[in-house]
Design a protein around this nucleic acid. Structure first.
Lengths: 136, 136
DNA sequence: CCGTATCCCGAGGGATACTG
DNA sequence: CAGTATCCCTCGGGATACGG
């Protein structure tokens, strides 16, 4: 909890964490958790439970190793998932949601389902738009 | 509704709109509606109602004209918002959510609120992570 | 198996200037 | 007011190769 230090120390948290403010950390966070690979990684860990690297790589068809690693690191750093190394031979690494990460499941699930449920409406809208633009 | 045309026409919709599939349109859509400026534009139109260009530009502190225009065009093309021109002098243009866009309010509101409510946890997690990385 | 390290290209996106 | 048009540069992100 970030506090404002005043004489009396009866300060309030600076809760102007408004993403509509320029440079606010919550804006960047919003961007990060809404990014393509982060959404899919968190979604997969949410439904499936703990996953290994290669497993995730397969599930998120099309992701490069670089982007997967990068995404996992960022999410780990943000405290949304935990990385556990089992020093076996060959080595085994598992990723799983932290309690904080769990709280994101709902919102992300809603967003993902929306995109599946309404993709056809959107594709239709695009065709209409392009057609109208073509006539002009 | 997109249907598969078979002899009997008792076909099912192709609902393999799975964002976990490589190249699936729903994946790109998910990426688009989760992007920073799109979330904020839709959020603002959701709370505030119809807005003018300059109004949005002020609310989304820090957005460039280029990105705002680009975001608005994409969202319009996708059928999420409607653009109305009032040929007054000076000209007036208003943006507002379509019914389809309205259905996104809930999911996006949840996501935005999450990032505000948990930004402090995340900042804390980052400090911890960086500190630990520093010692190694 | 689970990554890291490079190289490299093209898109993302900011700043600025101009137009109906 | 509400954009469009350019310039320009950063960096996202893919491909590839190598290391623990």
């Amino acid at each position: 909890m970030r506090l404002v230090t005043t004489a009396e120390q009866v300060s309030e948290p600076i809760s102007s964490w408004d993403p509509y403010t320029r440079g606010c950390p919550s804006r960047d966070l919003l961007d990060q958790i809404g990014s393509k690979w982060a959404v899919l990684v968190l979604g997969e860990l949410g439904r499936h439970g703990p996953c290994r690297f290669t497993q995730l790589r397969r599930q998120l068809a099309g992701v490069s190793e670089k982007m997967l690693t990068q995404t996992l690191r960022t999410l780990e750093r943000d405290g949304l998932l935990r990385r556990t190394v089992y020093p076996e031979v060959p080595i085994r690494v598992e990723y799983e949601l932290t309690p904080l990460g769990q709280t994101l499941r709902g919102p992300l699930k809603a967003l993902t389902e929306w995109s599946v449920q309404h993709i056809e409406d959107v594709l239709e809208a695009r065709e209409e738009y392009d057609e109208r633009a073509g006539r002009r």
